[in-house]
């Protein structure tokens, strides 16, 4: 079956896909955003339900995607269902645009939608993320799509879906605080550092996905739409704009986020989430912003961190985002070398 007939076959429903044939970058072998229109509609219906019941997990007929489960198939299906030809897409993993999986997902969407992509948080209308919320505040009209591996915050207490669904239905969340209690009793503090459970709109307990708890406060009363997709577990959930999102805690052990003794070696920020980099064999550490766009913005505005000379260059290359072509050159050299060796 060639690509042409495959595509027309996929659109055998009475509702043909919007015509995107003019998008130069859109691979005509696939329907816009890969999924067929019926599936996108099914997912959008699920998302509407999720938005209507903030924090509630909506089961959905997750499709088998050409990328592996656990690698963002839920987020990809959500993005595919909400994205339009006029959207500008940003994809980040660990806060950065240039991590391998982010690159791979962005490439996928460029191929199947031809939409404009960006690394600038402010320019994006749809941001798909894994493990971070951008440092720059989001605004109305933006959609943040989270990739979710395990949507059930109660899974570690009650592994049975049939039981945890009841716990949600009856708002029986006492056991969740037991976990926090245990950690204070043992370590003197709450030791959950990521995927830190939240209560949404004072009702449903929700997993924020494995973002660091540093990002939890950003979810609260956020003007953007926050959508969550778990492909393998076949669940959607959402936080509508301006919704209360409260991190679980005790009155005398309030929720607190990570702090660093260091600042970003490149832009000097000591308020953003920092990644630790081992820079030599002796184990010398440096810290830099996990959000590469945020770091670039600050540097453009003249902020500087402690790194100098070669170290600064090397670090900047890591967070540069845009490919300066040096990798491509290296790849060509490598290919030539191998050819010669054969």
């Amino acid at each position: 079956m060639n690509a042409e007939t495959q595509n027309s076959a996929r659109d055998h429903t009475n509702n043909p896909a919007p015509d995107h044939t003019n998008d130069p970058a859109h691979d005509p072998g696939y329907n816009f955003a890969y999924l067929d229109e019926q599936t996108k509609r099914m997912i959008r219906r699920g998302l509407l339900k999720a938005l209507a019941i903030p924090g509630y997990q909506v089961p959905f007929g997750s499709r088998e995607m050409p990328l592996p489960y656990g690698w963002g198939t839920g987020g990809i299906q959500v993005t595919a269902s909400v994205i339009g030809a006029d959207d500008t897409l940003k994809v980040i993993d660990q806060g950065a645009d240039d991590t391998t999986n982010a690159v791979s997902i962005r490439k996928f969407f460029r191929r199947v939608t031809g939409v404009k992509t960006t690394e600038k948080t402010a320019e994006a209308t749809v941001i798909q993320t894994r493990h971070r919320i951008p440092e720059a505040p989001l605004r109305e009209g933006q959609i943040l799509v989270y990739q979710v591996p395990i949507p059930e915050p109660l899974r570690w207490l009650e592994r049975r879906e049939s039981e945890s669904r009841k716990m949600h239905a009856y708002a029986e969340y006492g056991a969740m605080h037991v976990q926090l209690y245990e950690s204070i009793a043992r370590f003197g503090r709450i030791t959950t550092t990521y995927d830190y459970p939240v209560k949404v709109a004072d009702r449903y307990l929700m997993s924020p996905s494995p973002t660091p708890k540093f990002d939890n406060p950003k979810m609260h009363m956020n003007p953007a739409i926050q959508l969550f997709g778990a492909g393998r577990e076949k669940r959607l959930y959402a936080v509508p704009p301006y919704t209360r999102v409260e991190s679980l805690a005790f009155e005398d052990h309030p929720f607190e986020v990570q702090e660093w003794d260091d600042a970003c070696a490149l832009c000097g920020d000591d308020k953003s989430f920092l990644d630790e980099v081992v820079v030599d064999d002796a184990g010398t550490r440096m810290f830099m912003c996990s959000d590469s766009d945020h770091c670039r913005d600050r540097r453009a505005a003249g902020h500087r961190g402690g790194a100098e000379g070669a170290a600064a260059e090397a670090l900047a290359a890591m967070t540069g985002g845009t490919d300066d072509g040096s990798n491509k050159d290296r790849a060509e050299d490598w290919a030539k070398d191998r050819e010669a060796a054969q």
């Binding site: 969340y173 006492g174 605080h177 037991v178 209690y181 204070i184 009793a185 805690a249 005790f250």
Partner: peptide
């Protein structure tokens, strides 16, 4: 798998008690 304190404290938390020291 939960400590004695957590076992006795859980029903308190289930009915809304959110003060660690009081629960303990």
């Amino acid at each position: 798998g939960v400590t004695a304190g957590g076992n006795v404290g859980e029903p308190l938390m289930a009915v809304g008690n959110r003060h660690y020291e009081n629960i303990r």
